[in-house]
Amino acid sequence: MSARIGVVTFPGTLDDRDAARAVRLAGADAVSLWHADEDLHGVDAIVLPGGFSYGDYLRAGAISRFAPIMDGIVDAAHGGMPVLGICNGFQVLTEVHLLPGSMIKNEHLHFVCRDQTLRVENAETSWTTEYREGEEIVIPLKNQDGQYVADDRTLDELEAEGRVAFRYVGWNPNGSRRDIAGITNARGNVVGLMPHPEHAVEPGFGPDSRESGRRGTDGLGFFTSAVKGLLAIA
């Protein structure tokens, strides 16, 4: 039996195909979910991919959060289902209050696209068990509204509870508070981050690695973590 991981497409989502491919490369079945679906078609986990859902109108993720499928996702997340929000998906998770804080425009106002080094700060979430705590990984980053902000109390809470899942290393590309690249909920099943693990899953199509160009597959661990966790429960 293989795990079934749903990948949600909103109008304006861009990275759903890559996310589905990452799910398949990790050994799971990728199930396409449409934003207007009323139910989750029996999937075991959910990926909210990147892009510009609803054109980022109003605020990134602000309109997607009211899509019909989101009620089911919120319920499932509260029930412990692994949910990963990447970039725009992370913005949706904050707008729907599954994760605290919000993203505003990058401090320098430029769109950034680069291979970004991150440190895995929490290797116990549903999406990070295949990493070691403190491990540095390189995956692509591409966004304009990537500056993570929250009030100091929330940030202190995240730090104290080990809920900062990833931090930027070397350069903070968007002015995010405390170099935060991604966070998790208290239970560890909901994870959101701005950089894109789904673009670093297959040799030849990822970031440059130490060994050779485009060989980086540091993002695959997100998906294999979820698959292993799901199969352990099944």
Partner: peptide, 13 residues
């Protein structure tokens, strides 16, 4: 309006 304590990159530009 953006909250006073939140940096407003567009306003700054």
């Amino acid at each position: 309006m953006p909250k006073p304590e939140i940096l407003d990159p567009q306003g700054k530009a």
